[in-house]
């Protein structure tokens, strides 16, 4: 079936974004939660900018997508062996 794929990890299509927008999700964070783009293996590296462009074009301005969805560690999928059993010095630091 013909689809324009925005997010290859989660198979989110342009049609999904249009439907999400119609359903009232007019900002990047809630559109992300509704459609699931940027929640797959690559964590948005291939789709966030596409989705932001889509919203900014529909709403007529870059201001509506001024902030990207919150970015959280880790940047790439990582083996648990990298962290398992480590006593973390400086553990008073909290991820934002």
């Amino acid at each position: 079936m013909a689809k324009t794929i925005i997010c290859r990890c989660e198979d989110v299509s342009l049609e999904d974004l249009i439907e999400g927008f119609r359903a009232g999700f007019h900002d990047l964070e809630s559109l992300k939660r509704y459609t699931g783009f940027s929640t797959g293996f690559c964590q948005g590296k291939s789709c966030t900018a596409h989705a932001a462009r889509f919203l900014s074009a529909l709403r007529g301005g870059d201001d509506v997508v001024a902030d990207p969805p919150r970015t959280r560690p880790l940047l790439h999928p990582t083996s648990a062996a990298s962290f398992a059993g480590q006593i973390t010095p400086g553990s008073d630091r909290k991820p934002t």
Partner: peptide
């Protein structure tokens, strides 16, 4: 960060 429509954030 800021958004630029030709590229991204």
């Amino acid at each position: 960060v800021s958004f630029h429509s030709h590229s991204g954030y």
